[in-house]
């Protein structure tokens, strides 16, 4: 029996809270204790999933945000205006939700806080119980480790091995490999392909296990533990938000 990653999420679900749960690596949006959306700088948003592969022109997406964003009904607008099928919207939405939640619920990812009443502009599409989201995030973490137990593979630039491994590469893995230029991380490749980040982590770990891409040798130096006075400052309500902003900015540089 695995322990819960976020006791606060369990409590908020029990009290049927509405608002935004802010963690170091992402945010979960709740309505009546159910998860209605999730976002993380580590995973492509639903906009990227829909526009990257050409399903939706970027201007259609922008128009939907402009016209329905303030009412918090962007998802509904896309369907009602005939741009997307209900099924397509739900598929992309769930895909983005579970993908971002996986990163947001990473164990030990710093301070957690909750903004009561905060709502996401995408609107309510297909709410998922908090317990299911948490269970799925933990299952995904186990799945990655079963494939190839080297977590550094997830964040390091993907480097192709020079000596061919002789292992077959599937068409979806081929798309990942074609973008592995020694600089892009799995997250960068996911964004370029308009594919969930977790799906790319799976492919990269499989490729690393097969010896087709290199496994990072040296773990990136872990940040040194912060002194107590810094940790206390982290009670500042907006620290988690600022850190995510910083991460997002760094990622876009």
């Amino acid at each position: 029996m695995s322990t819960t990653v976020s006791p606060m999420l369990v409590r908020l679900a029990a009290e049927r809270a509405t608002g935004a749960l802010l963690r170091d690596h992402g945010t979960l949006y709740l309505v009546d204790g159910q998860v209605v959306h999730a976002e993380s700088p580590a995973s492509p948003g639903i906009d990227v999933l829909l526009t990257s592969a050409g399903r939706l022109p970027a201007e259609d997406w922008q128009e939907a945000v402009d016209r329905a964003g303030t009412r918090g009904r962007v998802g509904r607008f896309l369907v009602d205006s005939g741009r997307l099928a209900d099924g397509e919207l739900e598929l992309c939405h769930l895909s983005a939700l579970f993908d971002a939640a996986f990163f947001a619920l990473a164990p030990g990812s710093g301070p957690t806080r909750f903004r009561y009443g905060a709502a996401h502009w995408l609107g309510r599409i297909r709410p998922v119980s908090a317990a299911v989201v948490e269970r799925e995030s933990q299952r995904r973490r186990r799945l990655l480790d079963e494939l190839w137990p080297y977590p550094d593979t997830d964040t390091a630039p993907v480097v192709r091995r020079t000596t061919p491994s002789g292992q077959p590469v599937t068409p979806r893995q081929r798309a990942v490999l074609d973008l592995a230029d020694g600089e892009r991380t799995p997250g960068d490749i996911a964004r370029a392909l308009g594919r969930p980040a977790f799906h790319t982590l799976i492919d990269v770990r499989r490729l690393a296990a097969a010896g087709t891409v290199a496994t990072p040798r040296v773990a990136p130096t872990a940040p040194s533990p912060v002194p107590a006075w810094v940790a206390q400052v982290a009670d500042d309500p907006d620290t988690a938000l600022l850190r995510r902003l910083r991460d997002a900015l760094e990622a876009s540089l």
Binding site: L49, L50, S52, A53, E88, G194, R195
Partner: peptide, 8 residues
């Protein structure tokens, strides 16, 4: 299910 966006 075949989709016009990347999915499996």
């Amino acid at each position: 299910v075949e989709t016009a966006f990347d999915s499996s």
